[in-house]
């Protein structure tokens, strides 16, 4: 169990005992949880993870729980109810997502569901995640469509634009004249349907055409 607040830890402990489980490890933050994961000799059956931890975002731990072929079924608790976060949590392999504070009543139910190999996501949070998935799919499709229309040179220009280089600098880097750079930029704007450099970069990144470092 990883949760910062003692009250939440208490609720989770009660819920787990109700489900016939003993809480092997209680961590109050990321650092404690990492240490427990590293030194644990017996594999965990289930993990209850609060995303709002005093020393950082619990999402980071979720990423780690998914790595190394070790997937501990995890029930996430969070104040965040937006589709993007819920989908990200599920993407990183969590089996359940309950909101705080309303969902805390359902921790016992969630743990039992997960233990049975099922999923425990609150219906409206699941809805939000599905909408977000739809957005992701549309963006991926749109990105792929543009992908085929943007030339390699335009992509080079885009990458350098995203690093904040001026037209002159981009031209020098690619050994083309500033005029040619401007032509590329104009075509890029048209294809992306934008008017400014910032819009171009943010749109391209959103469509997965550009990896922002």
């Amino acid at each position: 169990m990883v949760a910062g607040h003692p009250v939440i830890r208490g609720i989770v402990r009660l819920a787990c005992e109700g489900a016939g489980l003993t809480v092997g490890v209680e961590a109050a933050g990321l650092a404690e949880a990492e240490a427990a994961l590293a030194s644990a000799d017996a594999p965990f059956t289930v993990c209850v993870l609060d995303l709002e931890l005093p020393d950082g975002d619990g999402l980071r731990l979720l990423g780690r729980l998914g790595e190394e072929g070790r997937t501990v079924p995890t029930l996430v608790l969070s104040e965040r109810r937006d589709g993007r976060t819920v989908l990200e949590v599920l993407r990183r392999g969590a089996a359940g997502y309950l909101s705080k504070p309303d969902g805390l009543r359902r921790v016992g139910w969630g743990v039992r569901r997960i233990l049975a190999g099922g999923a425990a996501v609150e219906p409206d949070l699941e809805r939000a995640a599905i909408e977000e998935l739809g957005r992701t799919a549309r963006q991926a499709r749109e990105g792929a469509r543009l992908q085929g229309r943007i030339t390699r040179r335009e992509r080079d220009v885009l990458a350098l634009m995203s690093e904040g280089l001026t037209m002159q600098q981009i031209g020098r880097r690619l050994q083309i004249s500033p005029r040619t750079v401007e032509t590329h930029v104009r075509k890029l704007y048209r294809k992306l349907g934008v008017r400014t450099r910032v819009q171009a970069v943010s749109r391209a990144a959103g469509l997965g055409l550009l990896e922002l470092r």
């Binding site: 599920l90 990183r92 425990a120 998935l133 997965g208």
Partner: peptide
């Protein structure tokens, strides 16, 4: 499909996107 599939579908979409790039 169970909600866990939601995460799996999202991961596949991410990989698809990467492949497209």
């Amino acid at each position: 499909p169970p909600s866990v599939a939601l995460g799996a579908v999202a991961r596949t979409l991410d990989r698809r996107r990467e492949l497209e790039v």
